[in-house]
Computed example of a mutant assay.
Amino acid sequence: MSQNSPAIASALNTIAVEKAGLSALEQALQNGLAEPFAKAVETIAAMKGRVVVTGIGKSGHIGSKLAATFASTGTPAFFVHAAEANHGDLGMINSDDVILALSWSGETAELKGIVSFSRRFKVPLIALTSGENSTLGRESDILVLLPKAAEACPHGVAPTTSTLMQLAIGDALALALLEKRGFTASDFRVFHPGGSLGASLSHVKDIMHRGDELPLVKVGTPMPEAMRIHSHKHFGCVIIENEDGTLAGIITDGDLTRNVERPMAGLIVDDIMSRSPKTVSPDQLLGSTLALLNEARISAVIVTDNNRPVGLVHFHDLLRAGVA
């Protein structure tokens, strides 16, 4: 399809308008929005309960996503639909919680019940809205005031730029809290045990080959013996260690190919080994290990602890683990 087609022109305009909204949000954070944003982070970090995210319509959909993001990054949270709150779901909220209410106008009728509830029972209320003088804005304890920005919709009606800005500031809150708590990749894995993401957050020590499985020989080993180990272990490599157990080098299929015309019977591993092999630690994440294999264009990597080979991870291991 031509770049001059109406569809492409529309798409480029949408992105440009929404990008302008994000730029306005960025500028706001460098000015008056910084203080309430920081206060919102401190308030949520100090709470004993959970973040109760609420909204309706498109803001509600964004709120539901933000609640999931908070929960998965170490901030307990759940979403309460503003309309359902008026029909019993207010019972899900207690005084240890913090309410995060999303409404672009700040005058959403369905929010009145949850706003009144927060005032009556002194539950901290954080508002994400562009309506500074709106009901939600006036009643909130912390007003995270979003800058006015044009919707990407050609009629200026469909929530587009506005919901993107809500999403961005909500993600910023979640990640600021993540960093404040020192939430690590290992913590992240606790909430994401499934799928390729959970697998990528596992550690090398969880899947590495070790002990008698390793294709391991000492320096000075004759090449015929090393080739026997190479063939028997099926890793496409042989790890060479010094007499003191430290890593000396590696012989890979590539090293064998490059030396195929040499008389192997008369050589030792020292003659052809690569002396600076790629290594990882047992605590390295599988995701970054896969990145290393791809970047170095190798099929296996040695696992070392204090420069001693303690394991081996092959690309096929990453496939079985669901990372690759």
Results as ranks from 00 to 15, higher is better:
S5V: 01
I8H: 08
A9Y: 03
L12A: 10
N13R: 15
I15G: 08
A16C: 06
V17A: 06
V17N: 02
A20C: 05
A20S: 14
S23Y: 01
E26M: 08
A28R: 08
A38R: 13
A38S: 14
R50Y: 01
R50S: 15
T54Y: 01
G55N: 06
S64C: 06
F70E: 05
T73A: 12
T73F: 05
T75C: 09
A77Y: 04
F79Q: 06
H81G: 15
D89L: 05
D89H: 10
I93S: 06
N94D: 14
N94R: 08
N94W: 02
D96C: 10
D97N: 00
V98W: 00
I99A: 06
W104I: 13
S105Q: 14
G106T: 13
G113N: 12
F117C: 01
R120I: 07
P124M: 03
L128C: 05
N133Y: 05
S134D: 00
L145R: 12
L146F: 09
A149D: 00
A150I: 15
C153T: 11
C153R: 15
C153D: 13
C153I: 09
H155N: 10
G156V: 12
M165C: 14
Q166W: 03
Q166T: 15
D171G: 11
L173Q: 09
L178Q: 11
A185Q: 04
H192V: 04
H192F: 02
D206M: 01
D206Q: 09
L216K: 08
P222L: 04
M227Y: 06
H230V: 05
S231G: 07
H234N: 15
H234F: 07
G236I: 10
E241S: 09
E241T: 06
E243G: 00
D244W: 02
G245I: 12
T252D: 09
D253Q: 13
D253R: 14
D255C: 14
N259D: 04
A265G: 03
G266C: 00
L267M: 15
M273I: 08
R275Y: 04
R275Q: 13
S276P: 00
P277Y: 09
K278D: 12
T279N: 08
S281A: 13
L286M: 01
A291P: 02
L292C: 10
S299P: 01
S299D: 13
A300F: 02
V303A: 08
N307M: 10
N307W: 08
G311P: 14
D317E: 02
R320W: 04
V323D: 02
